[in-house]
Design a protein around this nucleic acid. Structure first.
Length: 600
RNA sequence: GCGCCCGUAGCUCAGUCGGAUAGAGCAUCGGAUUUCUAAUCCGGCGGUCGCAGGUUCGAUCCCUGCCGGGCGUGCCA
């Protein structure tokens, strides 16, 4: 079994650098907050107590205003009825340079920003690439992200994609937030699955076939081993012996075989990684920790938590609320998944000094990571606090009667990632032939859009949900899809090309002319919040949703707001808006690891 | 059995710290192109937020129980 196939939040870099230079969009909120706080104090509230209760949210119904405050808690603090207090508060917030109005509506206070101020602050910040729209200054936070981590003795199929694309997005999101990120591919190149593959190859292997198509051939071997082992249980015993021989450290047949299969697998895996645009800072698989496990075991022993049980060495975790002990050494003396993960934690601690270590691994391995963390806690290792499992759901295949079931690679219904990507790219090529036959670089664009459609689809929903793999849905490029967002970028790029004039600097624009772009601007303003939430909760889908929403707003806006034929002053203002929307969508897609072609 | 996760429109899903009239996409029906890409936009239809209690001024959200589905549960990863 491999890691792939499936949160939490601790520290976060709070709002970006101090307000030097141009006012950024966060300052609209900050300004309102300060006014509200001052008003609360005027109304007799304690400043520190009130500070926590001034919480601004975008109202669900946009008719209510740009931003709203539910005055329930503040009213309680004041000992007044919420509607009465809301009215008093609203009256105190008189209009100023950026606040257009404040109005009480029952227990709520609704605010509106001046349209020109809204446009100026949002668009200036985007144009100057200021955080949160641009990369934040380094915060000093260090995040290790253990992702993809396929068992390389198995084919790279659809199930492996989730950890890969979620982890990749998290790397990008945390870097954007100013963290130092170590993206780590903890390859499954050790242990029993690898020993089984080795055993299969030693019995039925054919080197020519292996070199010809390593991934497919190893899939054949994998299936064959499964069948043979059913008929002949001795095979598993042999595999165990071979693993022991491999782990003895002696230069023997097993070691040479391990080297051959590992090399071939790694080469084969490079294909999907390249197509997905995924890179790693460190490729330190399980085998990397071969010579680091004894030190780790010594540390566990020294901590006094290691016990002998039924011939194995374990750490009992009942006192941590976990009934199943954590096995660190089998009765035959060989090591386990946990042993290597423990060694990896110590290694990462010493090498990278991380604040967080995220394990982007399927939800079915929850117990494994709970045990890992519990062992570290029991050892009183402070690094325990950094260990966070980031689980995600399974990929299910659709059955003929419209239900969904787990992919079973043993049964052979596994779908290779390459097949899916190829299928998607082919479909995109078809759409291009219909809609944009004169496009240059058709192949490159088809690859970019086709692969992105699959990646986007995987990042669209909360990661904990199972992904329902449905060809029809996967190959539909309308509605909430990757191509929908990319298409928005392409349209915006097209406008900028057609106008063929430089985008004006923000101090040369009359932002009052963008009053009709309020929905776009308010959506843009959500970006920082979205990225922060995505980082805190290890949830790239927050960024995906943002991208869909902004693309939707700009698509709607473009319908009846022309740039090309517009009055010069209007055109100038709209150019800034269009350019900002293009930048922001491109950034959002980039955080997801998705390219944004200028034409499609 | 025990532990954990999921359950919101016909389907796939959002719903942020408990807050205003629960939102999208797909499907379906009806519209929009003399101008920047119709992979688009606008509108209609569609809801017992699994069920029952509880807490609260207020629950899709928190608590308890139940139902349905999934995952896990000592020498695999």
């Amino acid at each position: 079994m491999n890691r792939p196939l499936s949160c939490s939040a601790r520290t976060r870099p709070c709002h970006r650098p101090p307000p030097t230079g141009p006012i950024t969009v966060t300052d609209l909120h900050r300004h309102l907050r300060e006014r509200l706080l001052a008003a609360s104090v005027d109304l007799g509230l304690d400043a520190t107590a009130a500070a926590d209760l001034v919480r601004l949210d975008a109202p669900k119904n946009k008719d209510h205003g740009d931003i709203a405050l539910g005055a329930f808690q503040l009213a309680k603090l004041a000992g007044k009825a919420p509607p009465a207090f809301a009215a008093e508060l609203a009256a105190k917030i008189t209009p100023d340079a950026v606040i257009e109005s404040s109005a009480a509506a029952g227990p709520f206070v609704n605010f509106r920003f001046r349209r020109a101020a809204l446009a100026r602050e949002v668009l200036s910040a985007i144009q100057s690439d200021a955080a949160p729209y641009g990369k934040a200054t380094p915060t000093g936070e260090v995040v290790c992200i253990d992702f993809s981590s396929p068992n390389i003795a198995k084919p790279f199929h659809i199930g492996h994609m989730r950890s890969t694309v979620i982890g990749n997005a998290l790397c990008r999101i945390h870097r954007h937030q100013g963290a130092t990120v170590h993206g780590i591919n903890h390859l499954g190149d050790w242990g029993m699955p690898f020993a089984k593959m080795m055993t299969a190859y030693m019995h039925f292997g054919d080197e020519a076939k292996l070199h010809e198509s390593p991934m497919r051939y190893m899939f054949e071997l994998y299936k064959r081993y499964g069948k043979e082992a059913e008929a002949n249980p001795g095979l598993d015993d042999e595999a165990a012996k071979r693993f022991k021989a491999l782990e003895s450290g002696v230069d023997n047949d097993e070691r040479r075989m391990w080297q051959l299969l590992r090399d071939e697998s790694l080469k084969a895996f490079q294909g999907p990684y390249t197509r997905l645009g995924v890179t790693f800072d460190h490729v330190t698989g399980e085998s990397f920790f071969e010579d680091k496990m004894e030190a780790a075991m010594a540390r566990v022993t020294a901590a006094g938590v290691l016990e002998e049980s039924e011939g194995a060495e374990v750490v009992k975790l009942e006192d941590k609320g976990i009934k199943v002990p954590c096995l660190l050494r089998k009765s035959d003396g060989t090591t386990l998944y946990h042993t290597r993960d423990l060694a990896a934690v110590f290694y990462r601690e010493q090498q990278y000094h991380p604040n967080r270590i995220l394990y982007v691994v399927g939800a079915e391995q929850k117990l494994h990571f709970a045990q890992l963390k519990a062992v570290l806690e029991k050892m009183n290792e402070p690094i325990a606090a950094a260990v966070e499992h980031v689980p995600f759901g399974l990929v299910l295949s659709k059955t003929e009667d419209g239900k969904y079931e787990k992919f079973a690679s043993r049964a052979g219904n596994a779908v290779f990632l390459d097949e899916i990507l190829d299928e998607s790219v082919a479909k995109v090529r078809q759409v291009i032939a219909e809609k944009n036959p004169d496009l240059d670089d058709k192949d490159q664009v088809a690859e970019q859009v086709g692969v992105s459609a699959i990646v986007f689809n995987d990042l669209k929903n909360s990661r904990i949900k199972d992904v329902k793999f449905d060809w029809d849905a996967m190959l539909a490029f309308e509605g909430e899809t990757g191509p929908y967002v990319q298409y928005a970028v392409a349209r915006l790029s097209s406008i900028l090309r057609k106008v063929d004039a430089p985008v004006p600097a923000t101090d040369q624009v009359d932002f009052a002319l963008l009053a009709d772009a309020e929905r776009v601007l308010l959506q843009m303003m959500e970006f920082g919040n979205a990225v922060r939430r995505a980082a805190e909760q290890s949830e790239p889908s927050v960024v995906t949703s943002f991208a869909i929403a902004l693309a939707g707003e700009i698509h709607s806006y473009l319908v009846d707001h022309y740039v090309v034929g517009a009055e010069p002053a209007v055109q100038q203002a709209r150019l800034v808006l269009v350019d900002a929307a293009r930048r922001l969508l491109t950034t959002a897609l980039d955080l997801l690891g998705i390219p944004a072609p200028e034409r499609m």
